[in-house]
Every structure is written in C-alpha cells, then in structure tokens.
C-alpha cells in the first residue's frame, strides 16, 4: 500500500506544480514529461527485446501532423483517437514486414522511416492539398498539455508495472536473451514483438499529438526532426532501457542538459550530445540503474 500512496502523492505534486510555476517552469516541466514518456514508451519495446528502434520521431511526427490536419474539422478528443489509430496501423505494417526477420532489418527500416514519412507527407501536401505548413489553433494552454502528458506518462508506467507482472514479460525477456530458444520454449516470438512494438509506437504517436498545439505552426521539417529520436534513445539508454524507471532517470539530467546546451551552444549541441552518447555506450552499456545495482551488490559483498 505504501508505494501506492507515495505514487499518488508524487503525481498530485506534479499535477499541482504548473499552478505555482511561471510559464518557463511549466514549459520546462512539459518538455521533460514529454521526453520521459517518449523514453519510457521506447524502452517498453526496445528494452526487453533489444531491438533498437530509430523510428521514434516517425510516430511522434505522425501524431503531431494528424492534429495539425484535423484540429479544425474534428473535436479534439476524437483527433487524438484518430492519431493513435494511424500510429497503430503504421506500426503494424512496419512490424509485420520487419519483425519476423533478424533485428538488423528492423533497425535499418526504422532508421529511414522518419525520412520516408516526412518526404511522403511533403509530397502529398505539395501535390494534393497544395499547402505545406499548417496552423494549429486550439484553446489549450501549456498546463493543459502538461496534464495530458502527465496522465499519459502515468498510464505508460502503469502498463509497464502490469507487464512486468505478467507472462508476456517473461516471453519478452526470453526473446531478448535468445530468440531461438524462446521460440522453442513455445513463445510466439513475432506476435509478442509485434504487439509490444505497436503499443509503444501508439504511445509515442500520442505524445506527438498531445504536444502538437505547443507549436502554433507545423510543417514536416519541424515535427519530423531526427533529434527527437536521438534524444529519446540516449535518455532511455543512459537510465537503462531494461528497467521501468531507467528511462525517466535518464530523461531528467539529459533533458535539462539539452535545454542548457541549446540555449548556450545552439550550434554545437549535436556535437556535444553525440559525444556524450558515445561515452554512454562505452561507460554505462546497461544504464545508470544497472550500474548502481552492481556497485551496491559489490559493496554488500565486501561488507560480508
């Protein structure tokens, strides 16, 4: 019962925060919650299966762009539903084509997916609708967006907690450890991977859709910015993609660092981030949390 109450308290505090924070603080909290959700959703699939997905921004952009296209014709909640459905169907197509093959095909496909979607959307807008770039006028303030993101983050975490207690988690970990062995043990490998990829992609699409009103002007180059995929990946890996709290632990310092870098070194941040990322791959291959655990165990071992 205690962790449950503690959780409620933290959520309550976080939900209350924008009422006392200024605009900058709320914006910061909003961005952080967005990335924390992206990283957690990313790790939901890529953590246990160890399939590196580089397609985060493809789904994020699909969500944001759907809102830009539909926000004036449909009521807002319905727009979110449509966005989620589009994200779901794209992820199912991509997953069905690539997930039954070796992991590297999936990585390659996901690597170029954002560029493909961006070019296709651009082509469609230029040739069919004749408008490149759209305005979003929705009566949503920063705190409204933040509350939605917070709710989505909590939901994502709850799914994560529930999954870790279910059989599907065992199946996933088995797939990540040794796919052939998992198949022999009776795990429907492809279906498990596909379901999880679709779930993770749908959440990512929703993050994009919810955050879209933050930009009043949207065009493909803005919403399909590859830096978003990169940051999500770095955050999840820094904290540890295999742990429930890992992505959030990674998201907090990296988001603040990114904010600081883009304010102070707007031209150099991608060099610095790239360098940091390479360091992470070398120094903490399994993430900070796993590192701390092994350190803790070693200390315990020494004490005995």
């Amino acid at each position: 019962m205690k962790p449950f109450l503690f959780g409620l308290l933290v959520i309550g505090l976080l939900a209350w925060a924008p009422l006392v924070l200024n605009d900058y603080g709320t914006g910061l909290l909003l961005g952080l919650t967005g990335y924390a959700t992206l990283a957690t959703a990313w790790a939901m699939f890529s953590g246990p299966t160890r399939y590196v997905s580089l397609a985060t921004v493809a789904f994020f952009g699909i969500g944001a762009y759907t809102v830009a296209v539909l926000s004036e014709t449909l009521p807002y909640p319905l727009v979110l539903v449509v966005a989620a459905l589009i994200g779901l169907s794209v992820s199912l197509v991509v997953g069905l084509a690539t997930l039954r093959l070796a992991g590297v095909y999936f990585v390659i496909f996901s690597f170029g997916l954002a560029e493909l979607v961006r070019q296709t959307v651009t082509w469609y807008e230029v040739n069919v609708t004749g408008t490149l770039g759209r305005y979003i006028f929705l009566p949503l303030e920063a705190r409204h967006i933040y509350w939605q993101l917070l709710a989505l983050l909590v939901l994502t975490l709850l799914i994560g907690i529930y999954m870790r207690k279910s059989r599907i988690w065992l199946a996933l970990v088995a797939v990540g450890d040794d796919e052939v062995a998992a198949r022999h043990a009776g795990v429907d490998v492809t279906r498990t991977k596909l379901a999880l990829f679709a779930l993770s992609a749908t959440i990512i699409t929703l993050v994009g859709a919810i955050q879209a009103p933050r930009w009043t002007y949207v065009e493909p180059t803005i919403v399909f910015n590859p830096t978003i995929s990169f940051l999500t990946l770095v955050m999840a890996l820094l904290g540890g993609a295999g742990k429930l709290w890992g992505p959030i632990v990674g998201a907090i310092p990296l988001f603040l660092l990114f904010e600081w870098l883009s304010a102070n070194f707007p031209n150099h941040y991608s060099i610095i981030l790239g360098g940091i990322f390479i360091l992470i791959v070398f120094a903490v291959p399994n993430g900070i949390l796993a590192r701390l655990e092994t350190l803790g165990q070693r200390r315990k071992g020494e004490a005995q």
Binding site: V52, V107, L233, S270, I271, G274, G275, F277, I278, V281
Partner: peptide, 10 residues
C-alpha cells in the same frame, strides 16, 4: 549501431 548513431550526430 548505437556508437555510430552517436558519431552521426557528431
């Protein structure tokens, strides 16, 4: 894949 993804951004 991860290391060269970082290198790409550098």
């Amino acid at each position: 894949i991860l290391a060269t993804f970082g290198l790409l951004f550098v």
